Amino acid sequence: MIRHTVTFRLKHPTGSAAETDFLKAACTLTSIPGVRKFECLRQTSPKSNFTFGLSMEFDDAAAYAAYSAHPEHDAFVQQRWIPEVLEFLELDYEVIG
């Protein structure tokens, strides 16, 4: 199992319609085959400058690779992520043990 996570900060003002629209668009990534346990998260820790997170799981590396190469994912990255995300940190995990 692979857990794909990304934490990010948007260019949009907090609580704006643009922020809400971006988050709704991000949630459409759940329709891509292989995505499991998708969560859109709001950062609550004062220790981080990031404001949101996305988390999802994949059965294996092949499912994750298929997601990454999927046209809907690519379109989201090109049309929404690159123009609207100010900064981000991506982490991918495999369970050990």
Rank of each mutant, 00 (worst) to 15 (best):
15 G>C: 08
20 T>H: 06
81 W>S: 11
61 A>F: 00
16 S>I: 11
28 T>V: 14
49 N>H: 14
29 L>R: 02
78 Q>E: 12
83 P>I: 02
64 Y>D: 06
8 F>N: 06
1 M>S: 02
70 H>R: 05
11 K>L: 03
81 W>L: 11
70 H>Y: 14
14 T>L: 08
38 F>V: 03
18 A>M: 04
17 A>R: 05
59 D>Y: 10
30 T>L: 09
93 Y>S: 09
4 H>I: 08
10 L>F: 06
87 E>M: 10
81 W>R: 04
8 F>L: 08
62 A>Q: 04
57 E>D: 15
58 F>Q: 14
64 Y>P: 01
75 A>I: 04
81 W>A: 10
65 A>P: 02
63 A>D: 06
76 F>M: 03
31 S>D: 11
11 K>A: 02
94 E>I: 04
21 D>P: 01
52 F>T: 07
42 R>P: 00
90 E>L: 14
77 V>Q: 08
89 L>N: 13
90 E>N: 13
48 S>E: 12
37 K>T: 00
24 K>P: 04
51 T>W: 03
81 W>H: 13
19 E>W: 07
13 P>L: 01
10 L>W: 03
81 W>Y: 14
77 V>T: 06
25 A>P: 11
23 L>H: 06
92 D>Q: 14
35 V>G: 07
88 F>Q: 12
34 G>A: 10
19 E>L: 02
43 Q>W: 00
50 F>V: 10
18 A>W: 06
23 L>D: 04
83 P>V: 03
59 D>I: 13
1 M>P: 00
15 G>Y: 12
38 F>E: 02
63 A>T: 05
59 D>F: 09
54 L>G: 08
67 Y>Q: 12
7 T>P: 03
78 Q>H: 07
70 H>N: 15
51 T>C: 02
4 H>K: 04
80 R>W: 08
15 G>T: 07
87 E>N: 12
38 F>K: 02
7 T>D: 05
88 F>R: 12
9 R>Q: 10
65 A>K: 10
67 Y>R: 07
96 I>R: 15
18 A>V: 05
1 M>E: 00
3 R>N: 11
20 T>R: 05
35 V>W: 05
62 A>G: 00
19 E>S: 02
96 I>Y: 15
75 A>L: 05
85 V>H: 02
35 V>H: 08
92 D>I: 10
75 A>P: 03
74 D>G: 02
59 D>P: 15
44 T>N: 02
52 F>H: 15
74 D>P: 04
53 G>Y: 10
7 T>I: 12
15 G>R: 04
55 S>Q: 15
44 T>Q: 01
87 E>W: 09
58 F>L: 14
67 Y>P: 06
25 A>K: 15
27 C>I: 13
96 I>H: 15
63 A>K: 09
40 C>M: 03
37 K>D: 04
5 T>Q: 10
23 L>M: 09
30 T>P: 09
95 V>I: 08
3 R>Y: 14
69 A>V: 08
44 T>L: 03
60 D>K: 03
